[in-house]
Nucleic acid binder design. Sequence first.
DNA 1: GATCAAAACTTGAATAATCAAGCTTTGATC
DNA 2: GATCAAAGCTTGATTATTCAAGTTTTGATC
Lengths: 137, 137
Amino acid sequence: MSEPLSALMAISSALGRFNKKMDRVLSVHGISFTDFQVLEQLAQSPNQVMSRIELAEATNLTASGITRLLLPMEKVHLVEKEKNNRDARVSLVKLTTTGNEVYQNALVTSQNFSDNTMQYLTAKQVEQLRVLVGKLS
Amino acid sequence: MSEPLSALMAISSALGRFNKKMDRVLSVHGISFTDFQVLEQLAQSPNQVMSRIELAEATNLTASGITRLLLPMEKVHLVEKEKNNRDARVSLVKLTTTGNEVYQNALVTSQNFSDNTMQYLTAKQVEQLRVLVGKLS
DNA sequence: GATCAAAACTTGAATAATCAAGCTTTGATC
DNA sequence: GATCAAAGCTTGATTATTCAAGTTTTGATC
């Protein structure tokens, strides 16, 4: 097996484990890792508003997947629908106050868990890892 | 957002993309990336035989997930069941000749794709990436 | 040799995500 | 201003996966 494939399989496996653990630690906030990624994206964006297509792109989900992921999040008022006056096709997703609170709490949990996951790496190595991963096409 | 969390989110996203692309490129062989991981594990193991529990561990799936993943693979004869004479609880999974052929072909495809994914990394960087990921706990 | 907790599954029910098809709206072109 | 391809969704059907519960078998302990 070539080194690149072998390396990618190992990384994929390690990240698979990480994703599942994230799901478990975030479950105390009543959200999945994917939910967290959505909250994260919204919290980061200018007016805490994004279109479903933008969210799909950011989370590696399909438009369909986003529609279905958001349904329960809307039901518990983490996010809410908003119209785009310039384009009626677009259904905007806005972070609510509740959503932001849950995000802030989940952020602390996620950071603690991530710090722990990377405890055997120096700050420089973390940066290096990020740079190397950034080179993947 | 802390650096470790930010880095892990970026890596997770990059690997999410990679996994989906792998699924797409492997679909020409009629298998998913998860199927490939199973074939890979079996091909690598001593007698091309493993228990379901070992496969579950190696693929980050549950025992239940493995049972259901293998059903269609058994149906198209990529793998077959075998008894463990020492322990009747165990249901062994054996790579068939057909399975090995599909694996060899899929391996070429996977390697090409992986080489391409890592084309902007030197051999040393690939190795470095693997070492850094290996430090994640 | 009986008892019993734990291991290695399988199965039913539920959740997560996809794909393909369809709907509405947009923006460009005639 | 009509036409039409493409964008931005939503929905039905399907696949992938999980969890919880149940089954059989094992191995240790009494």
